[in-house]
Amino acid sequence: MSTKTILVVDDSKTDFLYVKNILDHGGYKVAYAPSGADGIQMSKDLKPDLILMDVVMPEMNGFQATRAISRELETADIPILMLSSKSQQTDKVWAERQGATDYLVKPANPKLLLSKIKSLLN
């Protein structure tokens, strides 16, 4: 079984390191994009197995980046799990409309995060 690659798109280095630690323990390869625009570019270059997308980022937010990735032919089949401090139902519905596969509120419970990733990758 090959190691799955997960692209984490988050402008917060602290949040990234928290998630990276969880993913490392889960046995995943982790790539990092510090912005929505970088996330779009890296999703094309890297073709990760899954993307963890923050919502609140400067210049381009996670909703915009998710929309771009999910509507691009070469990246449309990559599952996107939104990971955000925004916990309103409207945020979750909007994320889905932009093409997100699932939604978790930060800080993510490590067991829940890994089980969601596992189910999205199967």
Results as ranks from 00 to 15, higher is better:
Ser2Ala: 11
Lys111Ala: 13
Lys92Cys: 08
Tyr28Ala: 11
Asp77Gly: 15
Tyr32Ser: 03
Glu59Trp: 00
Ser12His: 02
Asn21Glu: 05
Asp10Lys: 05
Gly27Cys: 08
Thr5Leu: 11
Lys29Gln: 15
Asp45His: 11
Lys118Val: 00
Val8Ile: 08
Ala33Glu: 02
Gly99Arg: 11
Gly36Gln: 03
Leu17Pro: 00
Asp11Arg: 08
Ile6Gln: 05
Ser84Tyr: 02
Lys47Gln: 14
Thr3Ile: 14
Ala95Cys: 05
Ile51Asp: 07
Met1His: 05
Glu72His: 14
Glu72Ser: 15
Thr3Tyr: 02
Tyr103Met: 07
Pro48Trp: 09
Leu50Phe: 09
Leu83Cys: 13
Phe16His: 04
Leu112Ser: 07
Ala108Glu: 04
Gln88Glu: 15
Thr101Phe: 06
Asp11Gly: 12
Asn61Gln: 01
Ala95Phe: 02
Lys86Glu: 14
Thr90Cys: 03
Asp91Gly: 01
Met1Ile: 04
Ser84Gln: 07
Asn122Leu: 06
Gly27Glu: 05
Leu104Thr: 05
Lys20Ser: 07
Ile40His: 12
Lys118Cys: 07
Thr14Pro: 00
Leu113Pro: 09
Pro34Cys: 02
Val30His: 03
Asp11Ile: 06
Lys118Asp: 12
Glu72Arg: 07
Asn109His: 09
Arg97Ile: 03
Ser84His: 05
Val9Arg: 09
Leu113Lys: 05
Leu113Met: 09
Pro107His: 05
Asp10Ile: 07
Ser119Val: 02
Met1Glu: 09
Lys118Asn: 14
Pro58Glu: 11
Leu46Tyr: 03
His25Trp: 00
Glu72Ala: 15
Ala37Gly: 06
Ile78Ser: 14
Trp94Asp: 03
Asp45Met: 14
Ala76His: 12
Lys86Tyr: 04
Val30Glu: 05
Tyr32Cys: 03
Trp94Thr: 05
Asp45Ile: 13
Ser2His: 10
Gln89Trp: 04
Ile78Cys: 13
Ile6Arg: 04
Val56Phe: 01
Asp10Pro: 08
Tyr103Thr: 08
Ala100Gly: 08
Leu104His: 04
